[in-house]
Design a protein around this nucleic acid. Structure first.
Length: 440
RNA sequence: UCCCCGAUAGCUCAACGGUAGAGCGGCUGACUGUUAAUCAGUAGGUUCUAGGUUCGAAUCCUAGUCGGGGAGCCA
């Protein structure tokens, strides 16, 4: 005995004029006297189910009248094409099996405030907009991994509990670790993924990372997912090509596979369709000139002196000058991480790049060629005030068959926010962790 | 951490220092084509907390709590 449905709503067109059993939840009900309209949602889609009093038993009709929003049920009926139905098909109901009657579902079809919705995040994920965003998130993750795998990459998982800060003094979450003092939640898998690069050539890690920064903006989470590929023998130039190819593959697949979700979100797909290589590349120096010339166009965007890092308004301004994601490369080494390879022609800048998303969604990717010389790496670790003892294993990677290599980290939720056109990053992950939000 | 804003019915909000209200949702009833149906009726309040000013405070003042928007930091 099984309770499984005979089909899903997404497949309903193949069952025209047949009798099927669907299983799901009531999205909405409209009563019209001797007629009840039910919108049934099963995860794959929604369909209108029509209950005529004269065509069903009294029990079935009174069950239909009882149904409330988010009640779980199994509905058996015949599939009929009907122009009046959203989706083109509706179900003429024969029988309704009540699985669980819901009382007082808190989220109604009317508007709600952010705080209320966040308190009910565990229920909010059922709403059509949230469903569409999280469906696209899943597609982005699948697209990224499948594309990388097809290019010969091997997924290589890095630890979440680590002994020290990977990139220096940024705030980390600490947790007691037996008699070894504190362990820290990883803020990146990058250093560890470099070891895999020396074993497999092309690797990537993909998992949650943690930042205990007191950021309070619509672009930040304290727990977010990062995809970090690392490639042996890849130079800075190779790195940028890989990034634009990966991002293009992701965006094009979402355009193909998630048309319906993008419609639900009312996402303008033209900017997404323009995402094709090559992406424009400008240097940090050119970006400073551009900011100097156009800073008045964006509020809070002030001219910068060489050596200063961009703020959010600067990224917005730069992005506004291009019709697709734009690379800003060769930042001053002093404002970047210790492991970045200096430009041989100009050692004060690093062979690194940030990829800035269009439409003001900010930095999607940060990447660089890594230092492959042990002596230089040691010098940089010390110059950054880090303990060499903590990084001996990392320096070891430069002592045995060291090669030039490059990699990058893509923030998953930033990518989801941009591709789905979601203004606030809190909607791009099922349970966002933020400065003032740990529940539910 | 800093700047700005807010908290009133289950939800979204209104109410000049003078009787705390509406819409939605809930409940009851009517309706054979509704799409956030419509119509009629009905229940629903410690105005975030603690002080203060005042004849009188949802309203003004102080402190706190919680939340929202932005900055910095970053992906």
């Amino acid at each position: 005995m099984s309770l499984l449905p005979t089909t899903t709503i997404a497949q309903i067109a193949a069952y025209a004029n047949q009798t099927v059993t669907l299983a799901g939840w009531i999205d909405h009900k409209t009563e019209k006297g001797k007629l009840v309209f039910l919108m049934l949602r099963d995860g794959s889609g929604t369909i209108q189910c029509v209950v005529f009093r004269k065509q069903v038993s009294e029990t079935t009709f009174s069950t239909a009248q009882q149904l409330t929003q988010e009640t779980a049920c199994r509905i058996t009926g015949s599939v009929r094409a009907d122009e009046r139905a959203p989706g083109g098909f509706e179900l003429d109901v024969h029988e309704i099996e009540l699985i669980h009657l819901t009382h007082d579902y808190p989220i109604t079809p009317k508007e709600h405030g952010v705080e209320f919705l966040m308190e009910h995040r565990h229920l909010w994920v059922r709403s059509s907009r949230q469903h569409a965003i999280l469906r696209i998130r899943a597609e982005i993750m699948a697209a990224a991994q499948e594309w990388l795998n097809a290019q010969g990459f091997v997924r290589y998982d890095t630890p979440i509990l680590t002994a020290t800060s990977a990139e220096g003094t940024t705030n980390l979450f600490a947790t007691p670790y037996f008699d070894q003092g504190n362990a820290y939640l990883a803020q990146t898998g990058q250093l560890y993924v470099e070891s895999g690069m020396m074993s497999f050539g092309k690797v990537y890690c993909f998992g949650p990372t943690f930042r205990a920064e007191k950021s309070k903006t619509r672009r930040h989470l304290t727990e977010f997912w990062m995809l970090e590929p690392e490639v042996a023998f890849a130079t800075h130039a190779d790195n940028l090509i890989l990034q634009e190819q990966l991002l293009t593959a992701i965006v094009q697949r979402v355009l193909q596979q998630c048309r319906r979700e993008l419609e639900v979100l009312e996402r303008d797909t033209l900017p997404l369709e323009r995402v094709q290589p090559p992406f424009p590349r400008i240097t940090y120096d050119e970006a400073l000139d551009l900011i100097g010339e156009h800073h008045a166009e964006v509020e809070g965007c002030t001219p910068l002196a060489w050596g200063e890092d961009f703020g959010a308004p600067h990224e917005t301004l730069i992005a506004s000058k291009f019709d697709r994601p734009v690379f800003v490369e060769k930042f001053p080494a002093a404002i970047k991480a210790f492991y970045m390879q200096p430009d041989p022609d100009r050692p004060e800048v690093a062979l690194c790049a940030d990829l800035i998303a269009p439409e003001g969604y900010g930095e999607l990717i940060g990447g660089s060629q890594r230092i492959h010389d042990a002596e230089l790496l040691i010098e940089r670790i010390q110059a950054h005030g880090l303990s060499l003892d903590d990084y001996q294993w990392y320096v070891d990677l430069r002592r045995y068959g060291s090669v030039p290599h490059s990699g990058f980290g893509m923030g998953l939720e930033r990518a989801v926010a941009w591709i789905t056109g979601t203004r606030h990053i809190r909607e791009t992950i099922p349970f966002p962790r933020m400065l003032y939000r740990l529940y539910p």
